[in-house]
Design a protein around this nucleic acid. Structure first.
Ligand SMILES: [Mn+2]
Ligand SMILES: [Mn+2]
Ligand SMILES: [Mn+2]
Ligand SMILES: [Mn+2]
Lengths: 218, 218
DNA sequence: ACTTTTTTTTAGACTTGACTAAAAATTAAA
DNA sequence: TTTAATTTTTAGTCAAGTCTAAAAAAAAGT
C-alpha cells in the first residue's frame, strides 16, 4: 500500500521524467511539489527501498517499471475523475483539477473499473491529456505546439500545456476548446506572436499562448 | 479545516450521541473507532479546543452545534456517495460502505452540490438511512424494528441497523431490500424468532435478524 | 588546479495521531 | 464506608512527513 504522499511523489516524478527525458533531480522534484529538497531526499530514499524508483546519491532518480505503473494508475484515476466532473457533473474544465487531486487517491480497483465504464472508457481527459489504460500504457498521439506552426498552417486543438484557471478561462473567452479547428493567418518573426482564425473570428495571440496549445495537423 | 482523523471522530461521536441519547464516553468512542482510550482523550481535547465538542474530564463529550453540523455534513457526503455508487455505478448495497468511507472526506462544497443534483437530491441512502440536508438537518421518519412488531403486523422495510456484508447478503438471498413489503405470520415468545411473508415466500427468521430490520407501518 | 557556487544529503527538531504503561478519578462491591 | 474494579487521563515513545541549518559532494568559474 501507498500513502497519499508517496502517490503524489510518484505521480510528479513520472511527469518530470517525461519533461526531462531522463533522470529527475532532487531540486526539480522539490520545486514541482512546493517542498524542500531535504524532504525530497527522505522520500526518494524511502521509495527507492520500496523499489518504486532507482536512486543513487547525487545522481537523481528514475522510476522502476512498477513505480511507473503505479504513477500511471494515479494519473489514470485523476483524469477519469476529471472526465466525470466535466461530463456528468457539468463542471467547467478549469474547475476540476483540484478536486481530481483529491479523488485520485481513492483506493478501489472496482470503483475505477466501473467509473471508466460509466464514462464510456474515454481516451482523453477534458484538457486533452491521454488517460493511461489499466496497465499503465499511454497511447501517444503526434501533436505539436501551436507556436511551432507556420503561416497558413491548419489544425485542431487537442490539448493544453498550461492548465491554470487563468489560461483556461482565456481560452474560453476566445472560444477555443479541445476539438476547435484553427488556422494560422500570420506569424511575427520578432516576438513569435500570431494572428489566428477560429470559426469566423480572427485575432492576435501572444507567443506565450501559442506555446501552451497543442495542435494536431492531419 | 479539519483533518481526516478529526472528521472521523466527529462522525462517530455523532452516531454514538444518537445511540446513547446523551454524553458519549471515552471508552465508547475508542471501541467504535478501534483505537485506544488514551488516543481518544487526546483527540477529544483537541476537538474541544476547536469548539467542536464540549468536554469535561471524566464526564464524556457532547457535540457543539458546529460540531454536529460538521459531523452531519460528513455523513451527508458519505450517504450521497453511496447513492452514487449504487444508482450510477451499479454497485451492490453491501459493497459501497468502504469506498464511501474514503469519498466522504473529499473537500469541495460545489462537488457535493452538483453530486446531489446529479442524483436528484435523494432523501435516503441505499441502506435506508436519511441523508442530512446541507444545513445538517435530518428528517426523521417513524420506523421501528421488525422485532418489535406483533403477529399479523404488516409493514415495509425502510432500513437496516447492521450494515455488514454478511447481513446485507443474507437479505439479498431472502429478497428483502428497502421498499420490500412484509407481514409477520408468527412470533415465538421463547426466542423472539418469527415467520414472515415476503412476496409469495414465507420463511423463518431469528430474533437477531428481526432486530436489525427497520419497518415502517402505516 | 584551485576557488566559489550550486546541488544534495545529513542531522536534528517539530506536528499529527497513534501506542504502552502508569497514575488518578470514578463507580461498583463488600 | 472502605476496598476493589473499572474508566479515564497523563506521561513518555514512535512513525510519517515536514522543516531549518549545517555538512558534503558536484559543477562552474577563474
Ligand atoms: Mn488535472
Ligand atoms: Mn487534466
Ligand atoms: Mn455507509
Ligand atoms: Mn449507508
Amino acid at each position: 500500500m501507498f500513502t497519499l504522499a508517496e502517490e503524489n511523489y510518484l505521480k510528479n516524478i513520472y511527469h518530470l521524467e517525461h519533461e526531462f527525458q531522463g533522470e529527475v533531480s532532487t531540486n526539480a522534484i522539490a520545486e514541482r511539489m512546493e517542498t524542500k529538497p531535504s524532504s525530497v531526499t527522505d522520500m526518494v530514499q524511502k521509495l527507492a527501498e520500496k523499489e518504486m524508483l532507482s536512486y543513487k546519491k547525487y545522481k537523481g532518480t528514475l522510476l522502476t517499471p512498477s513505480g511507473r505503473k503505479k504513477a500511471a494508475n494515479v494519473i489514470r484515476k485523476h483524469r477519469l475523475w476529471e472526465v466525470f466532473l466535466v461530463e456528468k457533473l457539468k463542471f467547467q474544465w478549469d474547475e476540476v483539477h483540484d478536486i481530481a487531486e483529491q479523488l485520485e487517491h481513492i483506493q478501489s480497483d472496482k470503483l475505477i473499473t466501473r467509473l471508466d465504464k460509466f464514462l464510456d472508457s474515454p481516451d482523453f481527459d477534458p484538457h486533452g491529456d491521454p488517460i493511461p489504460d489499466k496497465h499503465g500504457n499511454v497511447k501517444s498521439t503526434e501533436k505539436r505546439l501551436l507556436s511551432e506552426m507556420e503561416k497558413n498552417g491548419r489544425g485542431v486543438c487537442v490539448g493544453v500545456k498550461e492548465t491554470t484557471k487563468e489560461f483556461l478561462q482565456y481560452l474560453d473567452k476566445r472560444k477555443i476548446s479541445i476539438g476547435t479547428k484553427l488556422k494560422v493567418l500570420g506569424k511575427e518573426f520578432f516576438d513569435g506572436s500570431m494572428v489566428i482564425q477560429v470559426g469566423n473570428d480572427q485575432f492576435f495571440i501572444s507567443k506565450k499562448i501559442a506555446e501552451n496549445l497543442y495542435i494536431q495537423t492531419n
